[in-house]
């Protein structure tokens, strides 16, 4: 599956209630060592209850400027949460279903150790 099939997918809980849209996919490089870099495992999906896309990440970082844009994007993505891959029950093109009792995690990014 390619990433474009996941981003923008509608997310529903186990009862079929719409909970948001996948606006990004979080990977963590902590897998089995590869030839050069370890595997990048899919850690979870970032789900926004209100926004449909997020390309700048204001709502996940401490960036504050330009102030009007930062404030608007934070408001647009209020309630953004990370759902772990273990809480995903099914993925289809444009559609994601979560398990019963899934947990919402803070989507904030920590300080990066790389230069990106």
């Amino acid at each position: 599956m390619i990433l474009s099939d996941l981003i923008g997918a509608q997310v529903a809980d186990a009862e079929g209630t719409h909970v948001g849209t996948v606006v990004d996919v979080r990977f963590v490089i902590d897998g089995n060592p590869g030839q050069l870099l370890a595997d990048a495992r899919l850690a979870g999906l970032l789900v926004s209850p209100h926004g449909r896309s997020s390309t700048w990440g204001y709502e996940r970082s401490g960036a504050t400027g330009p102030w009007p844009i930062a404030q608007w994007l934070r408001w647009l993505h209020r309630g953004l949460f990370l759902v772990h891959w273990e809480d995903v029950s099914m993925v289809d093109v444009g559609r994601v279903a979560l398990r019963a009792g899934y947990e919402r995690h803070d989507a904030a990014l920590g300080p990066r150790t790389s230069d990106g």
Binding site: D24, F27, V28, D30, T55, D106, L109
Partner: peptide, 20 residues
């Protein structure tokens, strides 16, 4: 619903932000 905080070891990549 409660929002939980994660402690993740390793390099975190959000695909839209850090790869595309």
């Amino acid at each position: 619903m409660t929002i939980r905080r994660d402690q993740t070891a390793g390099l975190v990549l959000d695909a839209q932000l850090h790869l595309l």
